[in-house]
Design a protein around this nucleic acid. Structure first.
Lengths: 165, 165
DNA sequence: TCCCACTTGAGACTGAGTCTAAGGAAGAAG
DNA sequence: CTTCTTCCTTAGACTCAGTCTCAAGTGGGA
C-alpha cells in the first residue's frame, strides 16, 4: 500500500470514529506512513525537522491515540527504545531479528497462531494481542561469526532452549 | 527447587568461573531466589530493606553480571519496567499476561517450540533465544470488564478539518 | 606485607516518557 | 455573529529507570 493511500485510510478510520485529525496529528501521521519501524524519539526529531513548533508531548499523545485505536503497534526489541509500526490494513506478523546486524524479518504463520489460540483457551484467557520475537543469527552473520570469532574468554552462556524431536 | 538449593547452584556456577560472590552480591542473590519475577527497582528496594548500605548501582551491576552469565533473563512486558527471572536449572517457558490485573502465567508448549524451529530454519537463521508473550484478560477480569464497559458506541460523524499535503 | 585489580557507595547524569498550566482552535448553542 | 465549552497544543518542569564516574574500600596472590 502506498503511503498516501495508507494516510487516507487512517484519515477515514479516525473520521468514522469522530476522532479529530488536527494539523499536528496529520503531520505526525504523514511521517509515519513513510516509515516501516521507528522509535518515539525518532518520530519527534523527524516531525520537528519540518515542523519545529510541534511539541514532544503532541507526538507522544498521537502515538498513544493511534495505539489505543489499534492503528499502531509497539514492539519492545531487546536493545534500545521500543519501536512502533502502523498496522492498519496490514496483515499481522511476528518478528525475527538478527542479534549481530540488527536485520528484522517479518513473518506470519497460521499454525503458530492456531497453537497460540489453543494455549490461551486452556488458561481461560481472552487474547488481546501478542508479541512473538525470535532472536538469532542470520545466514550472513553465521558465516562471519566463524571467521571473526571473538576472543571472549567467557564461559558459554547457559541458555536452555527446549528443542523438540 | 528450593531457594537455598538454587542459591548454592548459583554459588557453585560462579565459583567454577572464578567470579567473586561478594557479600553484597550474596545478599542480592539471596533475595532473588525467593522471588519468581521482579523488576530492578523492586530488587533495589527489597535488598535495601535489610541492607540499606547496598547501593543501587551494585544491584544493577549484579543483575548485569548474572545476565551476562546466562543465569538471569530479562523480560519486557508492555507496561512498566522489565522483569527479571532466574533461569538456572529451570525449564524454558513463555509468558501469558493479564492486561488488567497484571497476573503473569508461565507456560511451555512443545508444539509451539517445534513450529518456531521450523520457521527459523526456513529463513536460514540460527536461533539464539526468543521471547513469546501473550496479552489478554484473565477469567476474573473478563467478568469485571463486562460490568464497567464504557459506552463508546458513538454515532459516526465526519468532521472535516483542514488537510495537509 | 604490599600491590593491584576488582568492587563498592554516593551521587551526578542521561534518555525516555509523563504531567501541568495556560493559551488556542473547533464545534455547539443562542 | 458571539459566547460557551470542550478538546488540543505548547513549553517546560518533572519523574523514573538506568548508567556513569570517581574516590575509597577490599581481598587474593606474590
Amino acid at each position: 500500500m502506498k503511503p498516501s493511500e495508507q494516510f487516507h485510510e487512517i484519515e477515514q478510520f479516525l473520521a468514522d470514529r469522530s476522532i479529530r485529525l488536527t494539523l499536528q496529528r496529520q503531520h505526525v501521521v504523514q511521517r509515519m506512513v513513510k516509515r516501516e519501524h521507528f522509535t518515539a524519539e525518532e518520530m519527534v526529531k523527524d516531525v520537528q525537522q519540518t515542523h519545529p513548533s510541534i511539541a514532544r508531548g503532541t507526538v507522544y499523545r498521537t502515538l498513544a491515540l493511534l495505539q489505543e485505536n489499534g492503528l499502531l503497534e509497539k514492539h519492545d526489541f531487546r536493545q534500545g527504545a521500543p519501536h512502533y509500526e502502523l498496522t492498519h490494513g496490514r496483515q499481522h506478523h511476528d518478528h525475527l531479528m538478527c542479534l549481530q546486524c540488527g536485520e528484522i524479518i517479518e513473518f506470519h504463520d497460521d499454525k503458530l497462531e492456531a497453537v497460540q489460540d489453543r494455549i490461551i483457551e486452556e488458561y481461560g484467557y481472552q487474547l488481546v494481542s501478542h508479541s512473538h520475537k525470535l532472536y538469532g543469527l542470520c545466514g550472513v552473520c553465521q558465516k562471519k561469526g566463524k571467521k571473526t570469532k571473538k576472543a571472549n574468554a567467557k564461559p558459554p552462556k547457559l541458555r536452555v532452549m527446549q528443542s523438540v524431536e
